[in-house]
Simulated assay, not measured.
Amino acid sequence: MLPLLTALWPLFALIVGGLALRRLDFPGEAFWPAAERLNYFLLFPALLFSSLASAPLDNPALPRLAAAVMLGLGLGWVGLLLVRRLRGWSAARFGAFTQGLLRFNTYLGLAAIGSLFGTQGLTLAALMLALMVPTVNLMSVWALTAERGVSGRALLLPVAKNPLILACLAGALVNLAGFGLGGGIDRLLGLLAAASLPLGLLCVGAALRPRELTGELPALGWNCALRLLAMPLLGYAVARLLDLPALESSVLVLFFALPTAPTAYVLTRQLGGDSQLMAALITLQTLLAALSLPLLLALLG
């Protein structure tokens, strides 16, 4: 338990630091949107590109890892659809609940995996992101627009323009083509990647909205319990079912145990979802994850 806490507490310290800095209005309100854009469009894609460009794509465990990712997400999606039919949720609420259950905080996930499992873990995480990011984005857009319908172009366009997905695809293509990252390119990407995770965690903290944690307590409670407890247990069961190796199992469970992504708030607001509910889910899940992540990982070994 102590090694887990040692690896994870600095990550949550950065999140709390981001929240404190924004409350103190330092370095200014205009800084945080600019920092998020810099990280989202440049620094974080550099991390994913460099990880996938050097990843062992011929690893025989990859098909099982891909099957585990898609099976876990698929079971969660089917469960949401069934509950929506029973409860009669509007698309505005269904979209928020879907993102609360299936989306994940990529910055926190990669920072935790890097702290716990090093470069090998980050490589596996980048491979998983290449599958999970487009899948959960498609599910989220469809959920938020389920009532009014949406064209195939409108559904796929946010996915096709996502810089994280483009970076994953570019890194995989460079890898498969056999191009190296010599001539200092690997060093440049490494410097950009090193800046990504701490800045991302500060931005996660700055995006939290504690004032939104009023009302909706039953909905917040069950969604947080499913995201932070039931989903990682589902990931563990899928990993055991498919007989994944220990490292792949650990990375899969950790991704399924992460709180939802702060960017879910922006997508929810843009597509007319319940943005207040989404903000509350992001805030509460992120705060509770400081307790649930180390406890769950310790229990699952």
Rank of each mutant, 00 (worst) to 15 (best):
L47I: 12
M70L: 15
A68K: 03
L43S: 01
L48I: 15
P56N: 14
L42S: 06
S54W: 00
A53H: 04
M70N: 10
F49W: 11
L42M: 08
V69W: 01
L71H: 06
P60M: 04
M70K: 00
P56M: 02
L43H: 02
A46W: 03
F49L: 15
F41I: 12
A61T: 15
L47K: 07
M70T: 13
L47Y: 14
P60F: 02
P60N: 07
L48Q: 09
G74A: 15
L62F: 11
L57A: 03
A53R: 02
G74Y: 02
M70G: 08
P56D: 13
L73M: 11
L52R: 01
S54M: 09
A66L: 10
L65I: 12
A46N: 08
V69F: 06
G72S: 13
L48E: 09
L42E: 05
F44C: 04
A55F: 14
G72E: 04
L43D: 01
L73V: 14
G72F: 07
L62W: 12
S50W: 08
A53P: 09
A68Y: 01
S54G: 15
L73D: 02
S50C: 09
A61D: 15
S50T: 15
P56K: 10
S54C: 04
L57I: 12
P63Y: 06
L62M: 05
D58S: 11
F44V: 05
V69T: 12
